[in-house]
């Protein structure tokens, strides 16, 4: 076997190869994962993990699929967390910070401790976007929270009980729907399609034989 390290998975010790990610190490130890495993590529937030290292009091966070094991690592996963997702009709909302604060009033209680930012496995400035909402700047909140994978680790650590990741998605939807300028060219094309502008040209190309299509394909202009 390659170099090994000893890790403890929810309190139980296992010897595993040192080159594995936390997720692969758990599987190596014999776990067939159900909870705490999703895309295995750092995009879905299913494998939110907290751990400690020997001699360090600090709680660290990771996505289990993206972090290599270290000797003495003590691992626990938080595959789900009871944050309350509020429901709303996005078409009836006003793009104002008040809207977000209405649905997630604990946002008011932010004490700027920055624990959420330190708990983010994506290194997002979580406190920064919560504070942006409090300043009424939804655009900034939307942009700062953009890379969120909604694992919820921020919420698990927040002393003010703010569900930051839910504040983030509401900010982004308000920004995307109401604040960002609309793509008018998309709307124009939709109207053209509805008016039947492309029906006949498509009909024509659909009826072509393969030889004619190949020729057309090879001769098509490539935009620089």
């Amino acid at each position: 076997m390659d170099e090994t390290v000893t890790i403890s998975i929810m309190g139980k010790k296992h010897k595993v190869p040192a080159s594995l990610t936390i997720m692969r190490a758990m599987e190596y130890a014999g776990y067939k994962l159900l909870r705490g495993c999703g895309c295995r590529g750092g995009f879905c937030g299913a494998c939110a993990t907290v751990y400690r290292l020997p001699g360090d009091y600090k709680l660290k966070v990771a996505l289990a699929c993206q972090e290599t094991v270290k000797d003495g690592m003590y691992i626990t996963q938080i595959p789900a967390y009871p944050s309350i997702k509020q429901t709303y009709d996005i078409t009836k909302l006003r793009p104002e910070a008040q809207t977000i604060l209405y649905y997630y009033p604990t946002t008011y209680r932010c004490v700027s401790c920055n624990t959420c930012t330190k708990s983010c496995p994506q290194d997002i400035d979580v406190m920064g976007y919560v504070q942006a909402v409090l300043r009424g700047n939804i655009t900034e909140a939307a942009n700062l929270s953009f890379d969120c994978v909604m694992c919820g680790l921020c919420a698990t650590r927040c002393p003010a009980e703010i569900p930051q990741f839910l504040v983030g998605i509401l900010s982004r939807r308000l920004y995307g729907k109401y604040i960002a300028p609309k793509a008018l060219h998309t709307r124009e094309r939709i109207a053209e399609i509805k008016a039947g502008k492309y029906d006949q040209p498509l009909e024509k190309i659909m009826k072509m034989d393969t030889a004619a299509l190949k020729k057309l394909y090879e001769e098509r202009k490539i935009e620089k």
């Binding site: 939807r173 920004y175 729907k177 109401y178 300028p181 793509a183 008018l184």
Partner: peptide, 15 residues
């Protein structure tokens, strides 16, 4: 876009 998804756009809103 209507659902509020954030696309990469220029300042005029063009995709």
């Amino acid at each position: 876009e209507d659902l509020g998804m954030m696309f990469d756009k220029d300042a005029q809103g063009n995709m």
